[in-house]
Structure formats: structure tokens, C-alpha cells
Amino acid sequence: MFYLNSSGFADAELNCNQNGGHLASIHDGFTNALLPQEAYKRFHESTETDFWIGATNLMSGNSWNWTDGSPFDFKDWKTGEPQNTTGANCAVQSLNDGFWSAQDCFKPKAYVCKTPLTYYTTTKTYPLTFNCSDGWNYFAPTHSCYGVNRSGYHANWTAAEVYCVNNGAHLPSIHSFAEFRYLMSYLYVPWYNVWTGIFSPDSGKTWMNKDETTVEFLKYANWCTGYPTNTTGERCVLLDNINERDCYSDFDCISRELNTVCKKPLFI
């Protein structure tokens, strides 16, 4: 799917998610040649010279990955790329020659989404909007409401999870880059950190989600410097914007009180 309406990288990925896919990943030379040719047919009347694809180094260990989680097994960087400069963390493909370059993720650009055919034949249709209760907001890619009741809630991890359960929810698990960025948005305006539903019952040897879904969180961001602490006992994970920007920290689940965001799936 080709989108001429310009968006920053994260917004483009979110729009792809809402339509059942991700920004396009590329795994062979044929696809790499086909995309700019097809894009040119749709974008040639605009001033666009390149478009977002799904490669970024924001998700894990400063290495380049695809937002759909597929192997990064093909690349076609322009000579001198990717740039090792601040902010050049997302990849575009040139309409003229098909080569890739790293650019500022906030630049508005056209983009290409890749959606599995099965999405159109077997996937349920979910609403793009939903009226959650007061203090909660709907996030269409996960079909879930996030938040707390209007007055908010500040507590240790254990009490926060009980609070979420009493509201038909859990502390949030993280299953995509889009969901990670959405949860981080709570930190940018009112708060500096917030609990997730991720915890370790064995001093950091294994990590689990309280909602019993699979654990994928390290695909989408890194540990803050010095974490995980590997301290004896149960450890609980928070999104951190104090120690370091956009990373994970872990603490014991009882002594530290933080802001709470709950996640309530609406459609199973």
C-alpha cells in the first residue's frame, strides 16, 4: 500500500499497523527494485524524492531492524550510508535509484506499507475509534484501551497490577514498536516513568508478562545503562525517561511507587 500523505516515521508505522501491516521490509533484490518503480507511478506528480521503508535502529541495540520483526537479511545502502549522526535513525528508499539512506525520523515523507494477504481474508475487522471510559484512551493497533480512572493511580508494581485487574485490565505488555512508542507518549508530557507488566520471578534470569502473553519487549528498546540490575528477588520493569531517554529499568516490585497505566484489550 502506497501512501502519498506525508508522515513522520512513527506515525507512518502506526497507520500501517491500523491497516494490518507494517512499513515495508525488503528481503531481496527484486522487491528492492520493484518498490521504487511502483512508488514512482503513484508519487511522480508530487515533490517526493524518497519514501519511508520499515528499517530503523531505534528498536534494539542501535542495530538496524525491520519494524515487522523479520530478519534484516538484505540491505542496499547508498555509499556513505547509513549515516552515524544524531537523529538519522530511520531509513528511506530513493525513488530515483532505489538506494537507502538514514534520515531524521520526524521528517514528513510518503511511505509504503506491507500487509499480509491473510489480513484481508481471515483477520477480524476492528474499529479505528472506540469510546473508552473517562481517563482511558483507545489505541487501534492493539484494539485496547490504556489509562487509569480520571484521578490517576500512583503505587508500587504489585499494588498497581491489583488496581489494573480490578478495572478489568493488566499492567501493559509490549508487542510492537508502535505500542512501545504509544506507551512512551505518557512519559513525554505528564510523567517521567511508568510501570509495565513485565517482571522477572527469578532475579532477571527470565522475564514474563503479567497478562501471560509472550515477552517481546527487548525487540523494541534497550535497557538503560546499568540495567537490568540482576538483584536477588522478583524484579519489575518500568519505562524510563529519567536515567536515559526511552529505555527500560528494573526495580524490586514493592519499595518503589510509580505512575500507573493499565491496558484493557477490548476484542479477543
Results as ranks from 00 to 15, higher is better:
residue 123 T to D: 15
residue 123 T to L: 11
residue 123 T to A: 15
residue 125 T to A: 10
residue 125 T to H: 09
residue 125 T to R: 12
residue 125 T to G: 05
residue 126 Y to R: 12
residue 127 P to V: 07
residue 127 P to Q: 06
residue 128 L to T: 11
residue 128 L to E: 11
residue 130 F to I: 02
residue 130 F to E: 11
residue 132 C to F: 08
residue 132 C to N: 07
residue 132 C to T: 06
residue 134 D to W: 03
residue 136 W to Y: 14
residue 136 W to K: 02
residue 137 N to A: 10
residue 138 Y to D: 10
residue 139 F to P: 03
residue 140 A to R: 11
residue 140 A to I: 12
residue 141 P to Q: 08
residue 141 P to T: 13
residue 141 P to N: 10
residue 142 T to M: 06
residue 143 H to A: 15
residue 144 S to L: 02
residue 146 Y to A: 05
residue 146 Y to P: 04
residue 146 Y to K: 01
residue 147 G to T: 04
residue 148 V to R: 02
residue 148 V to C: 02
residue 148 V to S: 15
residue 149 N to A: 04
residue 149 N to Y: 10
residue 150 R to P: 00
residue 150 R to L: 14
residue 150 R to C: 01
residue 150 R to Y: 09
residue 152 G to V: 07
residue 152 G to W: 08
residue 153 Y to A: 11
residue 154 H to N: 14
residue 155 A to Y: 02
residue 157 W to Q: 08
residue 158 T to P: 00
residue 158 T to F: 11
residue 158 T to L: 12
residue 159 A to S: 15
residue 159 A to V: 12
residue 160 A to P: 09
residue 160 A to K: 10
residue 161 E to D: 14
residue 161 E to H: 07
residue 162 V to F: 05
residue 164 C to M: 06
residue 166 N to A: 13
residue 168 G to R: 03
residue 168 G to E: 05
residue 169 A to Q: 03
residue 170 H to W: 10
residue 170 H to S: 14
residue 171 L to I: 06
residue 172 P to E: 07
residue 172 P to T: 07
residue 173 S to W: 04
residue 173 S to T: 13
residue 173 S to G: 13
residue 174 I to Y: 00
residue 175 H to N: 15
residue 175 H to M: 08
residue 175 H to F: 01
residue 176 S to N: 05
residue 176 S to M: 03
residue 178 A to P: 00
residue 178 A to C: 05
residue 180 F to I: 00
residue 181 R to D: 12
residue 181 R to Y: 01
residue 182 Y to N: 04
residue 182 Y to L: 02
residue 188 Y to G: 00
residue 188 Y to P: 00
residue 189 V to I: 15
residue 189 V to A: 13
residue 189 V to L: 10
residue 190 P to I: 02
residue 190 P to C: 00
residue 190 P to R: 11
residue 190 P to H: 03
residue 192 Y to L: 02
residue 192 Y to G: 14
residue 196 T to R: 04
residue 199 F to A: 03
residue 199 F to I: 00
residue 200 S to L: 01
residue 201 P to I: 05
residue 201 P to V: 05
residue 203 S to F: 06
residue 204 G to N: 09
residue 205 K to G: 03
residue 205 K to D: 06
residue 205 K to Q: 14
residue 206 T to F: 06
residue 206 T to E: 09
residue 207 W to M: 03
residue 209 N to V: 01
residue 210 K to H: 10
residue 210 K to N: 14
residue 210 K to D: 08
residue 211 D to G: 06
residue 212 E to L: 12
residue 212 E to S: 14
residue 212 E to A: 12
residue 213 T to D: 10
residue 214 T to Y: 08
residue 215 V to I: 11
